[in-house]
């Protein structure tokens, strides 16, 4: 498929962007880094006539850390996340996810917002945002709402965003330094691969006992999921090998993977258990 006859609008500020979107919500496709959108255009999956290019909207860039929380503009790229020690120190799961995402070229273009709205069950930034307790801001000319990340996706490629709404910001609370986390994934290769299974964790361990923990998994259900039974089992637990084997079994009952061109159901389910055990061992070392 060739891309032709597409008109691109590049507003200079948020106000103008929201206006265009409000007036023509269905005509416009929103373009951030384009690493999902342009691929779909090229494949002939979508045929936009008008693109709303966010590249020049200053309000959507950059990030800040204040009042106990980190706020990111939707157009922060994975490359920028990697370049900043703030994320390495205070958002380890997100930092690690950014590290294994795509390739340098992709990371320089791909934005956090695009990854979120694309709503792939395998989106690598989303499990970290789940465990970090993130919220996203959906704005329009006359409305603004903060939605918990776990309420945003409605299925593969679907979100509850209304057509005239723009994702503008992502925020999550800063936890005390005793919290640690990470992101583990299996892909078909080391780089430029879509996750077959991914797991983010964020927790705090004291004297070998889990005080609190959050987990999220990618590519094992129609959306990224959080495993409540597994989390409940882990809280207050000590991480002996037997307990870890038990909790891995619980996790396997909470995921709903499929077989596709990248992997099969059994393998994906079993790997959830393996990644969980690895995550917990990693957490133990991080917390000592």
């Amino acid at each position: 498929m060739r891309i032709s006859g597409v008109q691109t609008y590049s507003p200079k500020n948020l106000e103008e962007t929201l206006q265009i979107l409000y007036r023509h919500p269905l005509q416009f496709y929103i373009l951030s880094g384009g690493t999902d959108l342009v691929v779909k255009m090229q494949d002939g999956v979508i045929h936009p006539k008008h693109l709303l290019n966010l590249s020049f909207v200053r309000e959507l860039k950059g990030f800040s850390s204040e009042d106990g929380q980190i706020v990111l503009g939707t157009n922060v790229t994975f490359g920028e996340i990697l370049e900043n020690s703030l994320f390495r120190k205070q958002a380890e799961p997100l930092y690690q996810a950014a590290k294994c995402m795509g390739s340098p070229q992709i990371r320089n273009l791909a934005t956090l917002g695009g990854n979120i709205i694309n709503a792939s069950p395998a989106a690598d930034s989303v499990p970290p945002l789940f465990v970090l307790n993130a919220e996203v801001c959906l704005e329009s000319v006359n409305s603004i709402r903060w939605v918990k990340i776990e309420h945003l996706a409605a299925g593969p490629g679907k979100t509850i965003r209304k057509p005239f709404e723009l994702l503008t910001k992502i925020r999550f609370p800063i936890k005390p330094a005793s919290w640690h986390g990470g992101f583990l994934r299996l892909g078909q290769r080391e780089a430029l691969a879509i996750s077959k299974v991914s797991l983010a964790y964020w927790g705090v361990l004291e004297n070998g006992v889990i005080q609190d923990i959050r987990l999220a998994l990618g590519a094992v259900a129609p959306t990224v999921i959080q495993p409540p039974k597994t989390e409940a089992f882990l809280k207050g637990n000590t991480l002996t090998e037997t307990e870890m084997t038990r909790v891995a079994e619980i996790l396997k009952t909470e995921v709903h993977p499929i077989s596709d061109i990248r992997s099969n159901e059994t393998y994906r389910r079993e790997m959830c258990g393996v990644l969980l055990k690895r995550a917990l061992r990693q957490l133990m070392t991080q917390c000592t």
Binding site: S103, Q188, R189, E190, A191, L192, A193, I261, R262
Partner: peptide
């Protein structure tokens, strides 16, 4: 390790490099 053209009823299921997996410099 990774490369295999998969067909279903004679039709190639992985005609691009996101599903037909060749090694990168990382491998």
């Amino acid at each position: 390790l990774t490369e295999e053209i998969v067909t279903k009823n004679g039709s190639v299921q992985n005609p691009n490099f996101s599903t037909y997996i060749i090694p990168t410099i990382k491998e």
